[in-house]
Every structure is written in structure tokens, then in C-alpha cells.
């Protein structure tokens, strides 16, 4: 397998965008810190704060990155004699590497941010992505919290990036009509038709059961983020398996 080439090329494809992403994030952080600090210094009565969430922006970034990670790479790698298998294995390794790197950076960012925040009178705060879904256990040490948060972020990042990749592969394989149906029809079905049907005919039972199921598999009800880690990894494996089924016989579009 030409795995090394596939891995290095696909990884390099992300480097610039990740650098720009963190540059913007850092710029925004700095802008808010300095802006709000000045604001407070001039007017003591204003006690404004900004909460820059941790993880959500990375999540969106990785989803979009996943969406942009097939067509061009497939063309370039096929041009250079790389098989579809090497492409996909390389893609999985790249996603694993990027998600690992970004989950680590996000933790370091949060850690450094929590030290810097008092310097700016706590004008800018960060909330752990984990804290949005789970209540902190009083028994957890900060180290355990960081470890939990890191694995949680990593697993969610990987699942979301896999979903982005799978969507772009599906769109690549579809014809014009298929793209239209998938692009407009599927969202319309889930966001408009299904909710209407659910509330009209089932009194919201479908959505209640759905969210209850999601809560259970993500361990939200039990307050156990390790459930979410396991679920996300299983989902990722499922998504990439479907991805392989779609990629293994895909033709390069002329």
C-alpha cells in the first residue's frame, strides 16, 4: 500500500486550514479579552463577560473539513497511483491524527485560558464542551476531568469528521437528481416532514423516544461521558465502513 504517501498528502491538506482556524480563534480570544478589559477599566459599572465555549467551534470546523476531504484528494491520489484502499486507510489515520491534535490543543487552550482569564478580570471565560452535556461530579479531580473531557472531545470530533467525510462521498457518488434529493429532500424530511407527522399523528412520541435514546447512548441521563466515547467510536466505525463500501468501487469523474 502507498499508505505513507496517502497519509502525508491528506494530512498536509489540512495543515493550513488548522493553522488559520487557531489563528482566528486566538485573535478572537485576544480581541474579546482586551476589548472587555478596556471596557471594564473605563466603566466600572459594566460587568460584561463573554463565554467562549471549548470544543463546539472545533467540532464545526472538523465537520466542514470532513466535507471537503474527498473529491480533490481522490483525484490527486488516483492521479498518482494510489489505490482507494490506501486513500481510505490514509484518511482514517489523518482523521485520527487531526482529532487527537485538536483535542489536545483544545485542552491546552482551556488550561492556559483558565490561567489567563483572571488577568483580564474574568472578562472572557471558557466552558468545557463536556460541561454542556454532563454535570461535574464533585469527586472528580481536575486531572480526571481533563482526561474525561479529552477523550470525550476526541471521540465526538472523530465521529463528526467521519460523518462529514461520508456525506461528501455520498454526494460524489450521486448523480444530479440524487444530489438534489439528498441535499434538499433528506433535510426536508427530517426537519419538516417528520416533525409535522410526529406532532400531528404521534403527539411528539417519535422525537421524545429519539432524544431519550440519544440521551441513553451518550450517557447523558446517567452522567457518564464514557458512554458517549464508546458510542461515538462505534458510530465512527459504522460511518467509515459505509464509507469504504462506497469508496471501493467509486469511479474517478472525468
Amino acid at each position: 500500500m502507498n499508505l505513507q504517501g496517502s497519509f502525508r498528502y491528506q494530512l498536509a491538506d489540512h495543515k493550513k486550514s488548522i493553522f488559520i482556524f487557531y489563528l482566528i480563534m486566538f485573535g478572537l480570544y485576544l480581541l474579546f479579552c482586551v476589548g472587555l478589559w478596556i471596557d471594564r477599566a473605563y466603566d466600572q459599572e459594566i460587568n460584561s463577560t463573554v463565554n467562549l465555549g471549548e470544543g463546539m467551534t472545533t467540532l464545526i470546523f472538523l465537520f466542514v473539513s470532513g466535507l471537503c476531504s474527498f473529491k480533490e484528494n481522490f483525484g490527486m491520489l488516483t492521479q498518482n497511483g494510489v489505490s482507494r484502499k490506501s486513500l481510505l486507510v490514509g484518511r482514517i489515520l489523518v482523521m485520527a491524527t487531526i482529532c487527537l491534535f485538536m483535542a489536545l490543543v483544545d485542552k491546552v487552550w482551556y488550561f492556559v485560558g483558565s490561567f489567563l482569564s483572571p488577568l483580564f478580570d474574568d472578562a472572557v471565560k471558557q466552558t468545557l464542551f463536556l460541561d454542556l452535556l454532563y454535570h461535574r461530579s464533585a469527586e472528580d479531580s481536575m486531572l480526571l476531568l481533563y482526561i474525561k473531557s479529552f477523550f470525550f472531545n476526541y471521540a465526538v470530533y472523530f465521529a463528526v469528521m467521519s460523518a462529514g467525510f461520508l456525506i461528501t462521498v455520498i454526494f460524489y457518488r450521486l448523480g444530479k437528481l440524487g444530489k438534489l434529493i439528498a441535499g434538499a429532500g433528506v433535510p426536508a424530511l427530517f426537519l419538516i416532514v417528520l416533525p409535522i407527522v410526529d406532532f400531528q399523528f404521534f403527539a411528539g412520541e417519535i422525537s421524545r423516544n429519539f432524544w431519550s435514546f440519544v440521551g441513553r447512548v451518550l450517557g447523558i441521563h446517567s452522567g457518564n461521558p464514557w458512554c458517549a466515547v464508546a458510542t461515538c467510536l462505534v458510530v465512527s466505525v459504522g460511518l467509515m465502513t459505509i464509507g469504504w463500501i462506497l469508496v471501493r468501487r467509486v469511479s474517478l469523474h472525468e
Binding site: Q79, G81, S83, R248
Partner: peptide, 12 residues
């Protein structure tokens, strides 16, 4: 088909 080692011997 799908053999990197052989595909690497061809350039189109």
C-alpha cells in the same frame, strides 16, 4: 486493480 505496487509503475 487496487494494487498500489503495480499502479506505481504506471503514470497517466
Amino acid at each position: 486493480q487496487e494494487r498500489d505496487a503495480l499502479l506505481g509503475k504506471i503514470y497517466l
